[in-house]
């Protein structure tokens, strides 16, 4: 997207044009998703973060004209949101469970051998300092991810549905976006179902 067109779209968004908003969304959402997913691992969480970014963008639409670079703006928003969520995951077992479940290690044994000694010793050393209880919690988180599958089976919905529900409930998602931010429902639908 070239700068001129972008400036035009921003002007349109600033006066509440949701078509222009959709265009920005389509252009940037996949990039932002890929950017945050590298750190967050879970597609459900990454999508939520992207949503938050665009909701923020819509909320702040009236000051968009002063943005120098939309791209930097969006990526900065996404970065901060992703960072905060990752920080939160260390305390919130639901988020941690979701990240752990989505974490699929590369088979890269050669690499692992290079890492031997000092690094692995360090890891072991830290592990030994952890209280038993906290290790137990981690194991539970590990299992929690698997229980989503079971829950999905029981409820007869897709696993993604369970994840989405879970991510939503823990983030106290803005169900009242329309009321709170004056964002048109069509835009929300585009965000939710657009990707």
């Amino acid at each position: 997207m070239d700068g001129l067109n972008e400036k035009f779209l921003l002007t349109q968004i600033s006066i509440g044009d949701d078509a222009a908003f959709s265009e920005i969304y389509t252009a940037y959402q996949p990039l932002l998703y890929r950017f945050v997913n590298r750190f967050l691992k879970s597609s459900a969480i990454s999508e939520e973060i992207c949503q938050d970014v665009f909701i923020k963008l819509w909320e702040k639409r009236q000051s968009l004209l002063y943005i120098e670079s939309l791209k930097s703006y969006l990526f900065t928003l996404a970065k901060n949101q992703a960072f905060n969520l990752l920080k939160r995951s260390s305390l919130d077992n639901n988020i941690k469970a979701e990240i752990l479940y989505s974490y699929i290690p590369n088979e890269n044994t050669i690499e692992d051998k290079l890492h031997a000694d000092e690094y692995m010793q360090y890891i072991e050393r830290v592990l030994n300092t952890l209280p038993l209880q906290s290790r137990e919690v981690f194991r539970l988180c590990r299992q929690l991810g698997k229980t989503y599958d079971e829950a999905a089976n029981d409820l007869g919905i897709s696993r993604n549905g369970v994840k989405k529900h879970m991510v939503r409930s823990m983030k106290v998602l803005k169900y009242n976006v329309q009321r709170d931010f004056g964002i048109p429902l069509s835009v929300i639908l585009a965000i939710v179902f657009g990707s």
């Binding site: 590298r38 750190f39 260390s90 974490y103 890492h115 690094y119 592990l127 590990r142």
Partner: peptide, 24 residues
């Protein structure tokens, strides 16, 4: 190294545990 391996999907179970602990 730990952070890099986490990001690159190379962290083992133990490393993940340490990762989230140190993150906290």
């Amino acid at each position: 190294q730990l952070v890099e391996r986490y990001i690159d999907n190379q962290a083992s179970e133990k490393e993940l545990e340490v990762f989230f602990f140190l993150l906290e």
